[in-house]
């Protein structure tokens, strides 16, 4: 295994984690583990938007 694809994969993983993009993957994996049909991605992201709307996270100076 060469270093470049390894670093690229790690970087991709990090970015997806940091932005919360990977939450969808976790959700899908969880659904399939329990054998539940997942909701649509659109619906899932709407819910996350709704949660963000009702929580405040401060950004410092």
């Amino acid at each position: 295994m060469t270093a470049v694809p390894h670093v690229a994969r790690a970087l991709r993983w990090y970015v997806r984690q940091l932005t919360g993009e990977s939450k969808w993957d976790d959700y899908v994996a969880e659904c399939s583990a329990f054998g539940d049909p997942p909701m649509s991605r659109r619906e899932f992201e709407r819910r996350r938007d709704h949660e963000r709307e009702h929580s405040a996270s401060a950004r410092c100076c």
Binding site: R12, R16, T19, E21, W24, R41, E45
Partner: peptide
Amino acid sequence: LRHLRPGRVSEVT
């Protein structure tokens, strides 16, 4: 992110 491709944060960023 809301309407075109929900959740694809890295590409839109």
